[in-house]
Design a protein around this nucleic acid. Sequence first.
RNA 1: GGGCGGAUAGCUCAGUUGGGAGAGCACAGCCCUUACAAGGCUGGGGUCACAGGUUCGAGCCCUGUUCCGCCUACCA
Length: 884
Amino acid sequence: MLEKRYEPKDIEKKWYDFWIEKDYFRAESKSDRPPYCIVIPPPNVTGSLHIGHALDITLQDVMIRWKRMSGFNTLWLPGTDHAGIATQNVVEKELQRQGADRHALGREKFIEKVWEWKKLYGGTIINQLKSIGASCDWSRERFTLDEGLSRAVKEVFVRLYEEGLIYRGEYLINWCPRCHTALSDLEVEHEDKQGKLYYIKYNFIDGEGHITVATTRPETYLGDTAVAVNPEDERYKHLIGKMVRLPIINREIPIIADEFVDSSFGTGAVKVTPAHDPNDFEMGKRHNLQFINILTGDGRMSEEAGPYKGQDRFECRKNVLKDLADIGHLEKVTDHAMAIGHCYRCKTIVEPYLSKQWFVKIKPLAEEAIRAVKDGQVKIIPIGWENSYFDWMENIKDWCISRQIWWGHRIPVWYCEGCGEVIVSRDTPLECKCGSRELRQDEDVLDTWFSSALWPFSTLGWPDETDDLKTFYPTSVLITGFDILFFWVARMMMMGLKFMKEEPFRHVYIHALIRDAEGQKMSKSKGNVVDPLKMTVKYGTDAFRFTLAAYAAQGRDIKFSEQRVEGYRLFLNKIWNVARFISMNVKEGEEITAAIKVKKLSLADRWILSRLSSVISEVHNALEEYRFNDAASALYQFVWHELCDWYVEMIKPELYGDDPGSKRSAINTLVHVFETSLALLHPFMPFISEEIWQNLPFRRGCESLCVREYPSPEDGLEDRGAEKKMNVVMDAVTAVRNIRGELNLSPSLELQALIRTSNNAEEILNENIAYLAKLAKTKEIKIGKDIHPPHNSASAIKPEMEIFVPLEGLFDIDAEIGRLNKEKNKIEEDMEFVRKKLSNENFISKAPASVVEANKTKYNEYQEKLRSIQDNIDKINKWRKSDE
RNA sequence: GGGCGGAUAGCUCAGUUGGGAGAGCACAGCCCUUACAAGGCUGGGGUCACAGGUUCGAGCCCUGUUCCGCCUACCA
């Protein structure tokens, strides 16, 4: 017997442990069963579960559990990401609190510290995944810095280098002065801001006059090595080749001509700072200009900044502006909208910075990745994301992969101190070919995303040709948020195609971002984050998971509202209670046969089985297309409103009655439908479904719901006839209830019902009169073609029948007339609408015949209904007169 | 600057190929009916952002406008 209330906490742990103990989540390296594989988007090892993970994990778990139950050899491969910059930042802060810093500690000691930290806290998020029910194969858990994955990283690096797809060079990269490292273009977040445009005067060195340049970054004038104008610009043509002198520092630089310059912007003359601006960098190359680096790695002014040396870059800007103004070289300042790049890890403003870095030549890789999607080998769902994908891939630029931090995959490159040879190697080399043993490994580590790009095959054992790799690559689907479409998905596509010659996944399902109830992005600083673990404690994990699935409509962000979780918790409560109801009606130890003998079933039985059959199809189709919300709401609708509200109520007379045969038949069907529903629900709410399943006397030839076969759409129990008949019964019931409700009659009051029907409906109603009695709370039901209602009857019109409820003594004539008039008005409006259509010759001639026919039928029905209502109104008026 | 998405009931959102708009929550009325008052039954509530167009017919297709969100970009 189930407890009166569902208490999620203990139950969740109990069943999760049970599943683990039974090893249900373990995949087979070799199997006759078809493979189904998802690799988890590895959360940062420093992280803790946020609501975005919860959504991501829930959707993956739904797919995995569904496929597992459907007989697939299912692998959900879990793991974590070493998250270079983020993790290093966390440990550095920790050190800071202890009054230390990594430089004092030294590289090796520092890395030891990070590993220690990882051992202590790295399991946090994994345990949180378990707590929300993730059915991952934990025996295959991976970490991006594992031995095996590190080997894959080196292998990829070396091969790309050997093919000329990795190179080293001095370029302008994005530099974070706080993290002290290069960043890829993607790792820079642009933020629109209202800034200023400063107009600065540069004097000609010979004679009078000046040229004015406009800039958003006045302090960089210290690194200017030219002024550029458009060669076609009549205003400046004659000045090309002249020299100007930079104020204060007195450097002499030329005025040059370059097509790049937009004459309409600012003054049409641009200061050129090749070491501090991407465009100027290109211009500097074109014109052989000097590259002067005025900054240091921590964002301060370098030696080259002369009097400003040592100042912070923003401090320097203020000072430069003041000094220029003082000597009359600041012509004017205007407002200017611009976008400023920030470090995606620490939000510091990034700096275009000249330095030597490693790059991946990415175009050749991107071409394959574009083709795979164009050719349909990989399907992106929803399809709208394909455009973004193509757009990014087609305009891709070389990927800066070196990072000046310590935590990560060290670049497998050594430099010979003897001859300067560059050695790129899978293994640590001991000696250069020149004989020198003085080898120094590159100090940099690789972009974390470099290793996660290999995730779908490195985790399966690559570069070895393992059974796992053969069985599970390409994986079935990747489920993730759009925020890492480029960072991760795109790069996995490129690397997968390059090294496996096959796409890493067949489908990519991109889900939405979760925002707060007001549509704001959740962030710690705004204080509007929803802690998923708090949700699971408060409402139970299942209710929370079901909510997330129900929210997951394609192509729209989720505005998360706790109220909705509350609502689904009530749904679980409903399920719990119907389970209790069943357990009360099944004798202890009684075995319920799952087999359904169609011949002996009642109408209600056949109806609910038919409905079950169709909900199975709906769920199946929805999940096939990743319409999680549709699957969830189909189940909600079915279990609550069809199973509980109608079916359970309908069979109560049989259950409480004396006929053991019909009692048994009803309970059999009920148990069958409910057990099947639990199986359908299991991927969404694994805990409560298992708890109930284990406590009811089901016999399915397996010991856990999570390995029970998933209900299949081809069960042959659809029964359109039963559904039609049931609709007649339900119509009658609803009609009586409607009269009761509208006339404010007590639910406990037993009413009489007279139903005037067609032959067809008469038969159906007579056969199922017991349902009417129970559901509409009626007694003395009369059904026939020649029903004449007594004085003071309320009435309702339904297809094929007219229902009267005699109300002598209770009757409120005005209320009933009002009710009928309301109904009449509605019908008249509807009729008018159809009438207009039918009197339109164009409609008759151009619309499909079936549509025209349907409208004609409808019109006739309305007409009849209207006539009946009018009759009833007249009748009441007559009664009223005769009573007066 | 380019691109994408959204605007439907008081709120949050569904709406598959164009044939008279749905759900949940909230609201109102009546009910403690032996699974469930964390419940049941009934009801009210919408010019589908705006303006045009295509069509016999538009929430849905086309064009434009407004507002909101996001992605992306080397005009200093």
